[in-house]
């Protein structure tokens, strides 16, 4: 039996629609369409696979404004046992540190006897990869990023051997980890499609549950804007003076030759 908590994020698929509150520097997410972070599918898939093999329970936890409920309903449809939306006005403006603090408290609240916390490698909109390590820090458990494979699990001693990939070092590493632990799952480890066929039935039978700060009872100084060490000083549009390129009028063979000549000339200069 394994108790698995997945931390997921709702992200903005159409990136250009995001606006920033100029007063606080926080993102205005209301009214912006959201979807499940694409890299979280890998974590959900791994969780369901582990439950299939070893039994146990899988819960999904997401911190987001109330409108993210739809995304969690979809996750229930994929086959997780329970889904929790962590949402409160007091949480608004949280950076990654405050978010991790809140999520760690939510995991303790929902699944105090968790064995594994799984997350996607990064969020497709903010790309920080901070949350899994910081959640592990607040939960005081070991963690590893970029997991590609669970080699074996010793359920009696609660020890798991995992393999992870470091793409920028071309290296695979194996570790032996005593549970409970936090893992982020390598983003290209997705074996789609997930079991979406159970979606509608599951959605009817199991509702997304809400967690607010009434349940978690966290100090204001650790959450929201006041619990966030980072500040956005300004947000600027990326603008540039447009260039006026020379339009090359040649047939494709001439152009290919012209291009190669330029490249080879520069290569000769270098030598």
């Amino acid at each position: 039996m394994l108790n698995i908590a997945i931390i997921t994020k709702t992200v903005v698929p159409i990136v250009s629609t995001v606006k920033v509150d100029e007063r606080t520097g926080s993102l205005i997410r209301e009214g912006v369409p959201t979807t499940l972070n694409p890299w979280d599918y890998a974590a959900i898939e791994l969780a369901l696979k582990l439950r299939e093999e070893y039994g146990g329970k899988v819960v999904a936890i997401s911190m987001a404004p109330p409108f993210a409920r739809d995304v969690l309903e979809d996750i229930i449809g994929m086959g997780v046992d329970e889904a929790y939306l962590v949402s409160d006005r007091a949480f608004a403006g949280s950076d990654t540190l405050a978010t991790s603090y809140i999520l760690a408290a939510a995991i303790r609240y929902v699944m105090p006897d968790f064995d594994i916390v799984l997350a996607g490698q990064e969020a497709a909109d903010s790309l920080t990869s901070h949350v899994p390590a910081q959640v592990a820090s607040f939960l005081s458990v070991p963690y590893l990023y970029y997991i590609v494979n669970i080699v074996k699990i010793d359920l009696v001693n609660r020890i798991v051997n995992v393999e992870r990939i470091l793409e920028d070092e071309d290296r695979i590493e194996e570790f032996k980890v005593k549970l409970p632990a936090v893992f982020s799952v390598y983003k290209k480890n997705i074996i789609l499609p997930i079991r979406v066929s159970r979606k509608i039935e599951a959605k009817i039978n199991r509702k997304v549950k809400m967690i607010t700060n009434r349940e978690l009872n966290l100090e204001q100084s650790r959450i929201g804007l006041s619990g966030s060490p980072t500040r956005v000083s300004k947000v600027v549009n990326y603008t540039l003076e447009p260039r006026r390129p020379a339009k090359v009028e040649k047939n494709s063979e001439e152009f290919a030759k012209w291009l190669l000549e330029i490249v080879q000339e520069k290569l000769r200069e270098r030598q």
Binding site: G25, N237, Y238
Partner: peptide, 17 residues
Amino acid sequence: KPSFGENILAHIYIPDR
């Protein structure tokens, strides 16, 4: 830090810590 793809460059700092 370029953020949210299109057009946004966020300037972020860490006061007091």
